[in-house]
């Protein structure tokens, strides 16, 4: 029961969705659409369980006075304020949008911009043109970086055109080759999941 029922669900839902793809009848299309809506709704619960865990872990940290527990109070306070603003006032309420624009947006942008420093310092240490392949990588990266700043245009006015060509031709060719590999891998993995051969996503104790 603990194994058969979940495997039956993945098999039935998966193959039903696949079969309805080839049946243009209204009933088939409507039921497939409904299953997709349900899937989106159920998938949203993954975030709710994540938030539940976040609250549980931080409450535990506060109760046990673990290292830096004071920050857990800050985290929970802001989480609470955001949830109240969103669920009481609505997602278009002034308070919710104000919090989003003045906390989430600057913090998100700054966090991601911080990566520029770390990537730059890591590449400074790691980029060594020791082999032809590494040299190619280095040259392509330098050209793309130079071509996207005004000084690159001043050095050589064809830099922007060169980047455009690199992105459009060799980059596209390699990305397409990699994409085919990924797609074939995904296809085989999807079939393994639907047929119940791949079970690791269900957690431990289901292999037997």
């Amino acid at each position: 029961m603990k194994v058969i029922l979940p495997l039956a669900i993945v098999f039935i839902c998966g193959f039903y969705m696949l079969i309805t793809f080839f049946i243009p009848a209204k009933f088939a299309q409507d039921s497939s659409q409904l299953l997709q809506l349900w899937y989106q709704g159920v998938a949203a619960f993954f975030v709710f369980i994540g938030i539940f865990n976040l609250i549980k872990i931080n409450v535990d940290r506060i109760q046990r006075r673990l290292k830096d527990w004071e920050y857990s109070i800050i985290l929970l306070s802001f989480l609470g304020v955001m949830l109240v603003a969103g669920f009481v006032g609505g997602r278009d309420s002034r308070v919710f949008l104000y919090l989003f624009e003045n906390f989430q947006v600057p913090l998100g942008a700054t966090m991601f911009s911080l990566l520029a420093f770390f990537v730059a310092s890591a590449s400074f240490r790691a980029f060594r043109a020791k082999t032809p392949e590494a040299t190619l990588l280095l040259i392509a990266a330098v050209i793309v970086m130079l071509g996207r700043i005004p000084i690159g245009y001043l050095i050589w006015d064809k830099f922007p055109d060169l980047i455009e060509w690199i992105m459009r031709i060799p980059n596209t060719a390699a990305k397409r080759g990699i994409l085919f590999g990924i797609d074939l891998g995904l296809l085989s993995m999807a079939l393994r999941v639907l047929l119940g051969i791949e079970r690791s996503y269900m957690g431990g104790g289901v292999e037997k």
């Binding site: 975030v47 989480l79 913090l107």
Partner: peptide, 19 residues
């Protein structure tokens, strides 16, 4: 910690109202 709290709250609200 403010970022984690605000982001988690934001996505919970968005996913609830959108999906």
């Amino acid at each position: 910690n403010i970022f984690v709290g605000v982001s988690a709250g934001y996505w919970a609200v968005v996913l609830w109202f959108d999906y």
